[in-house]
């Protein structure tokens, strides 16, 4: 792992009126790292992630994404990040190829490049026979893998994944993570939120958010050692037990 910092936040805070959804978040993420962003429902994960993607303006604090400032250079940031939302984020009424063409198009890729890379993705995911079918006819696991491939289609520096494997079976989840590893090896930083503790184990480092504050940040191994427990489940339980906020 290289030591180039691609995400740097300092006291990043988001308040909705009196409610502080994310409180003085400070952390660094390195290039090519798989960074797990964990927390119970309502802990502020999605809020924090949305600020980093430029979907939501922070109340205060600083952040630098892919070398660009979150306050002044959001347009530059957008060119260098990919995003896969919690909800399934492809167009169900378009075919596999049309989705690829559209997302390649709005990132300003050239037609030839879109065709070549699109073919490569279709081949890699084994979707040759489905390329002309509507996305809604695909099983969920394939859709998710396709959505991820499209999120990194424009070779972003960082890809943000918001609970990407919700509702997917363990086998498909494993295959999905193979795609994530592959992206990480290509130097794409992966920032992922998840509820599954087995997935947390796959991350290089994870941060645990409780009540809008980052309570712990380390590799899964170190965290288990620090809390003297065997599994990530227990680490999560230890930390989340102290939460004041009710899950939503």
């Amino acid at each position: 792992m290289e030591n180039e910092v691609v995400i740097k936040t300092e006291n990043l805070t988001k308040a909705f009126g009196d409610f502080i959804a994310a409180n003085a978040i400070t952390f660094d993420v390195y290039k090519g790292e798989i960074f797990g962003f964990l927390g119970a429902n309502g802990a502020g994960k999605t809020t924090a992630m949305r600020m980093l993607c430029g979907l939501s303006t922070p109340t205060s604090g600083k952040a630098n994404i892919a070398g660009f400032d979150i306050w002044t250079q959001t347009e530059e940031i957008k060119k260098h990040i990919g995003y896969m939302s919690q909800k399934f984020s492809l167009y169900e009424d378009l075919t596999v190829r049309e989705n690829i063409r559209f997302f390649g198009g709005i990132y300003g890729l050239k037609g030839k490049e879109i065709r070549q890379k699109g073919d490569a993705i279709i081949k890699k995911l084994g979707l040759e026979n489905e390329a002309k079918k509507l996305v809604k006819s695909l099983p969920l696991g394939w859709k998710q893998k396709l959505a991820f491939s499209i999120a990194i289609f424009h070779e972003p520096k960082i890809v943000f994944l918001d609970e990407p494997t919700g509702g997917v079976d363990p086998v498909t989840r494993r295959q999905f993570w193979d795609l994530i590893y592959e992206a990480s090896e290509r130097g794409i930083t992966v920032f992922v939120t998840t509820h599954y503790m087995d997935e947390a184990e796959y991350c290089n480092r994870i941060s645990m958010m409780v009540d809008g504050v980052i309570k712990a940040l380390d590799s899964p191994k170190k965290l288990k050692e620090n809390y003297g427990v065997e599994t990530m489940d227990e680490v999560f339980y230890e930390l989340a037990r102290g939460a004041q906020r009710k899950a939503d």
Partner: peptide, 13 residues
């Protein structure tokens, strides 16, 4: 509703 708006807003479009 479908969540695709987020993806569009994250894009440079």
């Amino acid at each position: 509703e479908n969540g695709t708006m987020e993806v569009l807003l994250v894009s440079p479009f």
